[in-house]
Computed example of a mutant assay.
Amino acid sequence: MHVNTKQRRRHSAAFKAEVLAACAETGASVAAVAMAFKLNDNLVHQWRRGRGAPKAPGVASKVLAQTTPPQFIELTVPTTAPPSPVPPARPPDPTTEMITLEFKRGALGVSVTWPVSAAADCATWLREVLR
């Protein structure tokens, strides 16, 4: 018969606080922290839930305060007036000179019309399309 003579380890409140502080860091996983401190991750989870957590005031209590789950906070959002409806686009004036671009790629065809007065905008748009 095999008898386990290994005694349980006892950890100080300062050590537990250090482990819990490492768990509270952004991006830290409990398993990785436990492995780094040569602890079982289930033990660290128990400490985070409060069982066997450090009782000393100061750093330990701050760490426990950081590990409490977030709570719902109700906020009132000011309502704004709904945006005014956009008037329908007017068809271009046939007397105005227009730039017409037509693209075909396979079965897809696109036709774009720009006023000559916005030729610079048309050139900028065309450069982006052709990239």
Rank of each mutant, 00 (worst) to 15 (best):
79 T>Q: 14
105 R>I: 06
108 L>R: 13
26 T>N: 06
83 P>M: 08
45 H>P: 01
131 R>A: 12
90 R>H: 11
49 R>A: 13
72 F>A: 09
35 M>L: 07
126 L>T: 12
15 F>V: 04
61 S>W: 06
103 F>G: 05
6 K>C: 02
29 S>M: 02
54 P>E: 03
108 L>E: 09
1 M>Q: 09
67 T>N: 07
102 E>G: 11
92 P>W: 09
110 V>N: 05
84 S>Q: 09
4 N>H: 15
110 V>A: 09
80 T>S: 11
73 I>F: 01
86 V>C: 02
10 R>A: 14
122 C>I: 00
96 T>M: 10
96 T>I: 13
18 E>Q: 14
123 A>W: 06
121 D>Y: 10
108 L>A: 11
71 Q>S: 12
96 T>S: 09
118 A>E: 15
23 C>W: 04
101 L>G: 01
22 A>Q: 07
93 D>I: 04
43 L>G: 01
110 V>I: 15
18 E>D: 15
83 P>D: 10
128 E>L: 15
119 A>G: 03
46 Q>K: 15
57 P>C: 00
58 G>R: 09
44 V>Q: 04
92 P>A: 10
4 N>P: 02
121 D>M: 09
50 G>F: 07
71 Q>K: 11
63 V>M: 13
16 K>M: 03
121 D>C: 03
100 T>D: 13
130 L>N: 12
116 V>H: 09
76 T>L: 08
115 P>Y: 08
55 K>G: 02
34 A>G: 05
107 A>Q: 11
11 H>P: 00
66 Q>R: 13
21 A>I: 12
103 F>H: 11
67 T>F: 02
84 S>L: 12
108 L>S: 07
31 A>L: 01
75 L>N: 00
78 P>I: 05
92 P>S: 04
14 A>V: 10
121 D>N: 11
20 L>M: 15
57 P>M: 03
114 W>N: 02
91 P>V: 09
31 A>N: 01
84 S>D: 05
51 R>K: 11
8 R>H: 13
103 F>S: 04
23 C>F: 01
16 K>R: 15
30 V>N: 05
100 T>S: 11
79 T>H: 10
22 A>Y: 02
113 T>D: 06
119 A>M: 10
78 P>N: 10
9 R>L: 13
56 A>N: 01
117 S>Q: 14
40 N>D: 14
80 T>N: 07
115 P>K: 10
7 Q>H: 13
100 T>W: 05
129 V>E: 03
68 T>V: 14
25 E>Y: 04
115 P>V: 08
71 Q>V: 13
51 R>V: 13
108 L>N: 09
103 F>A: 11
76 T>W: 07
23 C>G: 00
111 S>M: 07
42 N>I: 00
125 W>G: 10
101 L>T: 03
127 R>L: 13
102 E>I: 08
74 E>D: 11
98 M>W: 15
3 V>N: 08
84 S>C: 01
21 A>V: 11
104 K>R: 15
80 T>F: 10
100 T>M: 06
55 K>N: 07
42 N>G: 03
25 E>T: 06
91 P>T: 08
80 T>P: 00
25 E>H: 09
93 D>L: 07
72 F>Q: 05
37 F>E: 01
52 G>C: 02
48 R>E: 00
39 L>D: 04
